[in-house]
Simulated scan of single mutants.
Amino acid sequence: MPDFERFRLLLEEERARRVALLPVLRADIAAANSARQDSNVDDEHDPEGATIAFELSQASALLKQSSAGLDQIEAALARLAGGSYGTCAVCGEPIAEGRLEARPWTPFCILHASSGRGR
């Protein structure tokens, strides 16, 4: 049986890390947008344009990924509070502790995650 308190702490630490990261990513996006406004909008011919576009794209992707991850963490904490944490959302079987250690926010056992439901 998994040590639910340990997983709660892991999830809370990861939530705090991601919450702290979100404003940094938003600031990066704002800075890239500001730099883009001050430069030539022709990314193809402006040497700085491609760099700015790349930085904006990268920061936007990281923000989206971190926000989605934060949602998964919040859902896992809700499952902990509701008593369903560590049980596969598809088959109802226990999720292996090793899988929970690697991805403490997962709602899927390895079988159902690998079938595409956990992605």
Rank of each mutant, 00 (worst) to 15 (best):
P47M: 09
L11R: 05
N40Y: 00
A20P: 11
Y85I: 12
A61N: 14
D43A: 13
Q58F: 15
A35W: 10
F7C: 04
E14K: 11
Q37N: 09
T87F: 03
A27N: 06
A113L: 14
D38V: 07
A31K: 13
S39H: 14
L70T: 07
A89W: 05
A53F: 05
I52S: 02
A68Y: 00
P47N: 06
T106Y: 02
E44H: 10
D38P: 00
L77I: 08
S57W: 07
A53E: 15
L100R: 02
S84H: 07
D28K: 14
D38S: 13
G69K: 08
E14I: 01
E97L: 03
P2L: 03
A50V: 14
C88Y: 03
M1A: 13
G86E: 07
R18I: 06
I95W: 09
G116E: 13
G118C: 07
A96T: 06
L77P: 01
G116L: 11
V24S: 04
R103D: 04
S57M: 05
D3S: 05
A50K: 11
E48H: 04
V90Y: 00
E44V: 15
A53V: 12
A89Y: 03
P94M: 09
E101D: 01
A50I: 13
S67V: 09
R17N: 08
D42K: 12
E55H: 06
A68P: 00
L21M: 14
R36M: 10
A113C: 02
S39G: 09
R103T: 12
R8I: 05
E74W: 02
G86L: 07
S34W: 00
G92L: 09
V19D: 10
E12G: 00
Q58P: 00
A35L: 15
F108P: 07
A16M: 05
Q72T: 00
A113W: 11
E97Q: 13
L22S: 10
L56D: 04
E14G: 02
P2G: 06
F4Y: 04
C88W: 01
D38R: 15
L9F: 06
V90P: 00
A16R: 12
A81D: 06
A78R: 11
G83H: 02
A20Y: 08
G92R: 11
A53P: 02
D43K: 04
R15P: 05
A16H: 05
L77H: 10
S114G: 06
V41L: 12
